[in-house]
Computed example of a mutant assay.
Amino acid sequence: MMLKEMKGRAVIIAISEFHPRHGEVGSLDQRKGVKRDVNRLFKVLSRLGYKVSLHMDVSAKEIKDIYQKESKMPQGESFISILSSHGNEGLIYDFYGTPVLLRDLYDILAPNNSPLLAGVPKLFFVQACRGEQFDEGVFLETDGDTCATDAFSLSLNLPRDSVLMFASSEGHVAFQNPGGSVFLQTLCNLLEGEERNLELNRILTRLAHMVAYTFQSQGQYGGFKEMPCYTTNLTRELYPFRQS
């Protein structure tokens, strides 16, 4: 796809299995349904005109290297980053269970470090737990662990011209099903429907509403909800998925 035909670039980074390094003990649980999520996202975003790269089960260094590479690539109308892993507030875990701070990834794409992304809208979607609380408001699997970390503002260190959307609210778990995560699957549903032509804030509001009001966890932890939330420092309306 030539640059003039490309709507933008999209990077999908997902961790489905975790393996501690030699000599370390313990491992995070396998995340079932991840491949369903990323395969569908790859197809949906590609059809919408994005040049998509998919990276599965990578290390912290590899994740940062992927962002570094993207920061030097010519961009289209917008840049999309989708992260799917176990996590906690302000971080996700790599293939080895090593924490990767989200603010470090944002910093790579900041205008002073990535001139080619300066002024380009950046959309971040994060499917990962942000704590251990269950939303009173699936399955028994969740995308988190028992490690605690200090919470920080959603927008702290967020590059200019960005939108950041989490699958759950601060301090709460995000659910991952064998059939895929409700957050990312619902996003795909919207992007495959007429809603893709809406302004971005309207799409994200509908995404949050659909997850919050149509999903309820099942199994051992049945009856809990999930409330996505997002923050933005965009200064103009954006139609990143509209097709003419």
Rank of each mutant, 00 (worst) to 15 (best):
V44G: 06
V44K: 03
L45T: 07
S46T: 14
G49S: 03
H55E: 12
M56S: 11
A60C: 15
E62D: 15
E62Q: 15
K64I: 08
D65H: 14
Y67S: 10
K69W: 13
M73E: 10
P74C: 13
P74H: 13
Q75E: 10
S78Y: 10
I82Y: 07
S84N: 09
S85V: 13
G87P: 01
N88P: 01
G90Y: 00
D94F: 08
D94P: 08
Y96C: 13
P99C: 04
L102G: 04
R103M: 05
A110R: 09
A110Y: 00
L117P: 10
A118Q: 15
V120R: 01
K122V: 07
F125Q: 11
A128C: 09
F134W: 02
F134T: 11
D135M: 07
V138C: 11
E141C: 02
G144A: 12
D145M: 05
D145C: 13
D145Y: 06
A148E: 14
T149I: 11
A151H: 04
L158F: 04
R160E: 15
D161S: 11
D161F: 07
D161Q: 07
L164D: 05
F166S: 00
A167F: 00
S168R: 06
E170S: 05
G171T: 06
V173N: 04
Q176L: 06
